[in-house]
């Protein structure tokens, strides 16, 4: 294997000098790919000059090119916000929790579903589990406020029946992040498990049969056949998930962050800048915030990609 790889490397090096003739050699592939190049140039690269707004003070009448440069003023403004680091920290902490607990959740669900032999039950569960994905946070926000209410909510009714004090989940700093993470897992787990379920069907059944003959139990099969079969897709999803660490779920947090008592733990970049009213009104500032988060995101993706490639040769590049 290693020898092969070395040989390949040598060959590709030789070829690199004169790769352009390969476009002709694989003309069908080139033909397929040309529309994509045009698409990305027109719809993604042509508008990219707009990034400069982040370094300008945007004036409607002067347009993007005519607006005056202000250098890093927008970024200074962002970093100068007193709560910036608290809010930035909250974003990362909540995202980390979401990654640690939220990322494996759909995989586990897919694995558990895979163990269900009753086909109709399995399909029904799959279909039901993805329902919450379709209910918007505006509706769910209201429902959760009721559901978690200390006086009327069923969860607290149970706690009270057990002789415990009711918990004001949405106003208690100790609970707020847990609520965020749990509700977001609950909402997305079914939907996100679809990709894993799809990949599961790609695993060769002969492998299971062989393992059975070897006397492997279900847990072992899961560990040694199913999980490795999912590795490529898990890797890709993980890379994207890490890249998304800096992005918070505005819709969710905006609809659940109603109590000032949990600002210290739950206020994130998007909700804070939203309250500043600047995202709606100031292009320059909004672009600067977007650029800042995207650069971080890009760096995170590059890093994860490098790491995963070291570990298991899968990656975006």
């Amino acid at each position: 294997m290693k020898v092969n790889a070395a040989k390949n490397l040598a060959q590709t090096k030789k070829r690199r000098e004169n790769q352009f003739h390969l476009y002709w050699k694989h003309k069908y592939l080139t033909l397929m790919f040309i529309p994509a190049i045009i698409y990305f140039l027109v719809f993604k690269y042509a508008p990219i000059y707009g990034i400069q707004i982040a370094f300008k003070s945007y004036r409607f009448k002067d347009g993007i090119f005519g607006s005056p440069w202000i250098g890093l003023e927008n970024f200074r403004h962002l970093f100068g916000v007193k709560s910036f680091w608290q809010v930035f920290g909250n974003t990362l902490i909540i995202s980390m929790y979401n990654l640690i607990f939220g990322f494996p959740a759909p995989i586990i669900l897919a694995l558990l579903l895979n163990e269900i032999t009753h086909q109709r039950f399995k399909k029904t569960v799959q279909t039901i589990s993805y329902l919450p994905h379709f209910v918007s946070w505006v509706v769910l926000g209201g429902l959760f406020v009721q559901f978690l209410s200390p006086s009327l909510g069923p969860i607290n009714a149970i706690l009270k029946a057990l002789g415990r004090d009711p918990i004001f989940f949405l106003a208690d700093p100790k609970w707020f992040r847990t609520v965020l993470v749990l509700t977001s897992i609950w909402k997305g787990v079914g939907w996100r498990s679809i990709i894993y379920l799809a990949s599961l069907s790609g695993i060769n059944p002969e492998l299971y049969e062989a393992a059975e003959v070897d006397g492997a139990n279900r847990f072992k099969k899961m560990l040694h056949i199913t999980l490795p079969g999912l590795t490529p897709v898990i890797t890709i999803m993980l890379i994207f998930a890490v890249g998304g660490l800096i992005h918070d779920n505005f819709d969710q947090i905006y609809n659940l962050l109603i109590s000032p008592t949990v600002y210290q733990v739950g206020d994130v970049l998007s909700t804070y800048t939203y309250r500043m009213g600047l995202v709606k009104m100031e292009y320059s500032f909004a672009t600067a915030v977007g650029l800042f988060t995207n650069i971080i995101s890009f760096i995170l993706i590059l890093m994860t990609n490098t790491i995963t490639k070291r570990i298991n040769e899968y990656g975006i590049w």
Partner: peptide, 16 residues
């Protein structure tokens, strides 16, 4: 890279 780059860097609403 040419494609992935566009996931992170876009010109924003006005030029689009």
């Amino acid at each position: 890279g040419f494609i992935v780059f566009t996931m992170f860097f876009s010109g924003g609403l006005i030029p689009s």
